[in-house]
């Protein structure tokens, strides 16, 4: 008869289970659902953004600029352009989410599954078409301005959200769906309580991809009078003013990094516990 092992947690009737993963949670408290190093990695990105903004502000305060440059890089102008750029991004993203998530969910339902290739095909065309071409064609059709830009951005960035919604839901273990139905949950209850919560991480990753895509693509808004930071870049090119060109590019990059970071934070917070 053997000596005993000093592990009071393991009850005799579970002792034969394979080496027990339940070990670390002695108090029965679930562990935090943060992947290792997750939050630390998240802290680096905003630090870089803040550093970038500081460097830009410092440069702007010390550089000798022509009158045109100074006017274009004035605090009020920059602030307006940035807000306008953000507004284009956020409004388009909201519309994309409102359309693509329900559409993606609908396309995973058995009754509508056969439309999947068609819809994905259309979304593919939206993204594969050169963005500038899409902007100009839509402007000729709908007229120039803010809302045409939003329409173009929506068409251009719907695919990642649509596809990730579908992939996220299709990625849910079919046995879980069967278990849900098998215990008497309605199809709707299974969707709302099992499939969607489990698809959240993938859907959010798609939303973040779309957001970053939107920040970059919204620079093209300037060509159809949509405003935003693209104006700075465009003016810089047209007037051969490198300071404007570089400022615009740097600000767009910083904005994209900041938006990407926000998306990652939301992903961390919204990730269902237990995954």
């Amino acid at each position: 008869m053997t000596a005993t092992t000093p592990d009071p947690r393991v009850r005799p009737d579970v002792a034969a289970d394979p080496p027990d993963e339940a070990g670390p949670a002695t108090g029965g408290r679930p562990r935090a659902a943060t992947p290792p190093g997750g939050w630390r990695a998240l802290a680096v990105q905003p630090a870089l953004v803040v550093l970038g903004v500081l460097v830009f502000v410092l440069w702007r305060a010390t550089a000798t600029l022509t009158e045109t440059e100074a006017r274009q890089l004035g605090a009020a102008t920059l602030w307006d352009s940035t807000l306008r750029h953000l507004s284009l991004t956020v409004v388009s993203a909201a519309i994309v989410l409102a359309i693509a998530v329900p559409l993606g969910v609908a396309l995973t339902r058995p009754a509508l599954r056969r439309f999947t290739p068609v819809v994905i095909g259309v979304a593919n065309v939206g993204q594969a078409a050169p963005a500038i071409g899409l902007f100009v064609l839509l402007a000729i059709w709908l007229g120039f301005g803010y809302w045409t830009t939003v329409v173009a951005l929506v068409v251009y960035s719907a695919l990642p959200v649509l596809r990730n919604t579908m992939v996220g839901i299709q990625g849910v273990d079919p046995r879980l769906v069967e278990a849900g139905r098998g215990m008497g949950m309605s199809g709707r209850a299974v969707l709302l309580r099992v499939e969607l919560p489990l698809a959240v991480p993938v859907v959010l990753a798609g939303a973040r991809t779309a957001l970053v895509l939107l920040v970059g693509t919204a620079t093209l808004a300037t060509f159809i009078s949509g405003g935003g930071l693209g104006v700075l870049i465009n003016t810089g090119i047209t007037l051969s003013l490198d300071s404007l060109l570089v400022s615009g590019a740097v600000l767009v990059a910083l904005l994209a990094l900041a938006v990407d970071w926000l998306g990652r934070v939301v992903e961390q917070v919204a990730r269902p516990k237990g995954l």
Binding site: V14, A16, D17, A22, G28, R29, P30
Partner: peptide
């Protein structure tokens, strides 16, 4: 089913072994 409720009630499935 032989699982102590105080220990296991608030755990998530991935924190359990296959048998549990």
């Amino acid at each position: 089913v032989g699982l102590d409720p105080d220990v296991y009630r608030d755990r998530y499935p991935k924190e359990l072994s296959g048998g549990q």
